[in-house]
Simulated scan of single mutants.
Amino acid sequence: MTVIDSHSHLFLEEFSSDLPQVIERARMAGVSHIFMPNIDSSTVTPLLEVCNQYKGYCFPMIGLHPTSVNGMYKHELQEISRQLKENETYVAVGEVGMDLYWDQTFLDEQIEAFKFQIELALQYNLPIVIHCRDAFSYIYKVLKEYEGSSLKGIFHSFMGTPEELNQAMEFGGFMFGINGTVTFKKSVLPQILPLIPLDRLVLETDSPYLAPVPHRGKRNESAFIKDTLTKVAEVCKVSPEHLSQLTSENALKVFGMLK
């Protein structure tokens, strides 16, 4: 049984001392692919180094994370553009979107950065990976502007309400990323998950964040995706084997790698 981690930040400093062991544990857990979203210009080099070191196993995305949008965001976006122009290894534009949980100072800039990166994704025929925190209405409004286009992607770490799920479902080219939060005691995901068609689910870890139970509070890593797989299979009333196959196919499909 193999499974895909569609969203992991193994290039961050948290893994600098034991990355080979982390990768080996992921392989032993049956993880067949790890997809890695960028954060900003400061992480491009370590991202590419890890993906080059584990070529064919780790796959890079390029994007500007919404929490990195500040007064220098236009400079950052030009770097994203340059990377896409000069490097064909990127499999998606991400992680992009909006985050109004921590700070709303750069609300307009976040919207502009999101739209700019959607345009890049369409230009290069790549999916986008959307980070959305306390900003769904804004994300939805922007995506509606591209309805009818070839835009596709993943709603990363989806934790919306049933109403938000219905709205997100309107965008048929998008998958829903489920991670360790589904195992948390107060998670609403077990109520939401049965409403999502299985052919639109992908699994992720968001390592080093959001470690699932029984690892909660520890550094998350790709091997722990098995705990998320087990919980999602239980909630959706399917076997882990069936779910791993389906979600793996979904991930490869959205990243344009399904043979």
Score class of each variant (00 low, 15 high):
Pro197Glu: 11
Ala223Met: 09
Phe255Thr: 04
Val22Met: 14
Asp227Gly: 06
Glu112Arg: 11
Gly148Ile: 07
Thr105Leu: 07
Lys259Phe: 09
Ile130Met: 03
Asp99Glu: 10
Pro60Tyr: 06
Glu13Leu: 05
Glu145Arg: 09
Asn250Lys: 02
His9Ile: 09
Leu195Asp: 00
Cys51Gly: 02
Gly172Tyr: 04
Pro190His: 12
Gln117Glu: 09
Gly63Tyr: 01
Leu12Pro: 11
Leu229Trp: 07
Thr105Met: 08
Ile130Gly: 02
Ala29Arg: 06
Asn220Ile: 08
Asn250Met: 07
Thr183His: 02
Ile39Cys: 00
Leu77Thr: 09
Pro127Thr: 03
Gln21Lys: 14
Ser81Val: 05
Pro212Arg: 15
Cys236Gly: 05
Tyr209Glu: 04
Asp227Glu: 15
Gln191Ile: 03
Ser42Gln: 14
Pro66Tyr: 01
Leu77His: 03
Phe155Ser: 03
Leu84Thr: 08
Ala211Phe: 00
Met169Pro: 00
Pro194Thr: 02
Glu95Lys: 05
Glu76Gly: 11
Glu170Gln: 13
Glu79Gly: 05
Glu76Arg: 13
Pro214Cys: 06
Leu165Arg: 14
Gly63Gln: 00
Ala113Asn: 13
Ile154Ala: 05
Ile225Ser: 11
Gly172Ala: 08
Gln245Val: 13
Lys55His: 12
Gln104Val: 06
Lys253Arg: 14
Phe35Tyr: 15
Phe106Glu: 02
Val182Phe: 02
Pro212Gln: 11
Ala135Pro: 01
Gly30Gln: 09
His242Ala: 12
Asn179Arg: 12
Tyr54Thr: 13
Val22Pro: 08
His65Arg: 14
Lys253Leu: 08
Gly217Leu: 10
Leu165Met: 12
Leu252Gly: 07
Lys141Leu: 09
Leu48Pro: 07
Glu241Met: 00
Ile196Gln: 06
Glu95Met: 12
Met61Pro: 06
Ser244Cys: 01
Ile139Asn: 02
Thr67Phe: 04
Pro37Ala: 07
Asn38Trp: 04
Ser68Val: 06
Gly30Lys: 11
Ser81Arg: 14
Asp134Glu: 15
Gly71Gln: 15
Ser150His: 13
Val142Met: 03
Arg82Met: 07
Pro240Arg: 10
Val182Cys: 11
Arg216Tyr: 04
Glu241Trp: 00
Phe35Met: 14
Asn52Leu: 11
Leu195Gln: 08
Gly71Glu: 04
Leu12Ser: 12
Ala251Trp: 01
Pro127Glu: 04
Leu210His: 06
Met169Val: 02
Phe114Gly: 10
